[in-house]
């Protein structure tokens, strides 16, 4: 479900992640709400997956709505590289 280079945004509440999903979909952005990978063990267990090509738009929408994720990771081989501080 998560390809190399995909971004995984982890949220700290079910309501925030659902709201983020709704907003991004309304914008026609190609994202997918998925269970958070076990190794990233988030409280609510949900994450939004998106690819490099929509990253600027996704993060702009989230930022504007005050819905930035708690943590952001990028899939890199078998690992998830934390990018949290970049946005």
């Amino acid at each position: 479900m998560i390809k190399d280079g995909d971004f995984i945004a982890i949220f700290n509440s079910i309501h925030r992640v659902m709201e983020a999903e709704r907003l991004l979909k309304d914008q026609g952005l190609k994202i997918l709400l998925i269970p958070a990978p076990r190794s990233l063990a988030a409280d609510c267990g949900l994450a939004i997956r998106y690819a490099e090509d929509v990253r600027p738009q996704v993060e702009a929408v989230l930022s504007e709505a005050g819905l930035l994720p708690r943590d952001l990771y990028r899939k890199n081989g078998d690992n998830f590289e934390k990018l949290g501080e970049e946005i």
Binding site: M1, M18, L33, I34, P35, G45, L46
Partner: peptide
């Protein structure tokens, strides 16, 4: 709906 989606992906 969200839980069902989650279940299948899990």
């Amino acid at each position: 709906r969200l839980l069902m989606k989650n279940f299948i992906i899990t």
